[in-house]
C-alpha cells in the first residue's frame, strides 16, 4: 500500500474511530445522566381546611415493573388513583393526616425502639381504629414496616398482617385483601426536602435486608417535599 494512500486511509479511519468513540462516550454519559437524574414522579397534595390527607399502601411484592418481587410503598393521588412513587409534596406548617393501608406481613423488629410512635400529634397512632403508642412486635403478627421521617422525629410502626393468609401479591392492592389500617397526623415542617423511609430491613435477599427496595427511591423510601 503506497504511503500516501495509506496515510489518507489512516487519517480517515482515525477520524471515524474517534468520532465513533466520542459518540459512544456521549451515549454512556447521557445514559448515566438520564438514569441517575431520573426519579419517580411527585404526587402533590393541596390543603383543605388547613389540613392535608395522604394515603399510602404497602405491598409485599409490587408485582410489575422493573422489580416485581420488591416490597414497595405507593401513594394514592387526590384523584383516587394509585401511583408508584415515594415522592410527595405538602404545604409547609400544615397538619398532615396520613392513612396507611398495610398489606404486608410482619416479624419481630431488629430494634424494638422502632415499635414506638413518635413525632405524631399526641405521639399516638391508630391501628384499625384502636389508639396505640407502642407496638410490641414480639407478639401477634409483628411489624412489617415503619413510616419514618427522621428529620422531624416522625416514626410509626406498621403492624403486619397474618403471613399465613392469602396476601396481596401485586399493587395496587384491593381492600378485599388482608390489611391493617394505620392512621396518624403530624405537622409538616418548614419548606425543604425531607427523606422518609421504612426502618424495617425488609429488602428480602439483600445484605442486612437494607439493599434493593430499601435503597431505591420509589420503593421503601423517598422524599416529602414541603413547599
Amino acid at each position: 500500500m503506497p504511503w500516501g494512500y495509506g496515510d489518507v486511509v489512516n487519517k480517515t479511519g482515525r477520524a471515524a474511530l474517534a468520532g465513533a468513540l466520542a459518540l459512544i462516550a456521549a451515549g454512556i454519559v447521557m445514559f448515566a445522566f438520564i438514569n441517575l437524574m431520573s426519579q419517580p414522579g411527585t404526587v402533590t397534595f393541596a390543603a383543605s381546611n388547613g389540613q392535608v390527607n395522604v394515603t399510602l399502601q404497602t405491598v409485599g411484592s409490587y408485582g410489575s415493573g422493573d422489580h416485581p418481587t420488591w416490597v414497595s410503598y405507593e401513594i394514592q393521588t387526590q384523584g383516587g388513583t394509585w401511583q408508584h412513587t415515594t415522592i410527595w409534596q405538602v404545604p409547609a406548617r400544615t397538619q398532615v393526616n396520613v392513612t396507611i393501608l398495610q398489606y404486608d406481613s410482619g416479624s419481630p423488629l431488629r430494634n424494638e425502639q422502632l415499635g414506638q410512635v413518635t413525632g405524631t400529634v399526641g405521639d399516638v397512632a391508630t391501628l384499625n381504629g384502636a389508639t396505640f403508642s407502642v407496638n410490641n412486635s414480639n407478639v401477634g403478627n409483628g411489624v412489617g414496616h415503619t413510616f419514618s421521617i427522621p428529620a422531624i422525629g416522625v416514626s410509626v410502626p406498621l403492624a403486619g398482617v397474618n403471613g399465613n393468609d392469602t396476601l396481596c401479591g401485586a399493587a395496587p392492592c384491593e381492600p378485599s385483601s388482608p390489611h391493617n389500617v394505620i392512621k396518624f397526623s403530624f405537622m409538616s415542617p418548614g419548606p425543604g426536602n425531607y427523606p422518609w423511609q421504612c426502618f424495617v430491613p425488609c429488602g428480602l435477599g439483600w445484605l442486612y435486608g437494607n439493599g434493593g427496595p430499601m435503597g431505591t427511591v420509589g420503593y421503601m423510601g423517598g422524599f416529602m417535599k414541603v413547599v
Partner: peptide, 28 residues
C-alpha cells in the same frame, strides 16, 4: 417510654440483633 422499654432487649453493650437476619448473613 416505659411501655417501649419493657419490650426492648435488656441493656447490653453489644447486641446480636438477628431477629431479622442481621447476623452478618443475608436476610432472612
Amino acid at each position: 417510654l416505659a411501655a417501649n422499654t419493657a419490650v426492648l432487649a435488656p441493656f447490653a453493650y453489644t447486641y446480636t440483633p438477628d431477629a431479622n437476619g442481621a447476623d452478618g448473613g443475608y436476610y432472612p
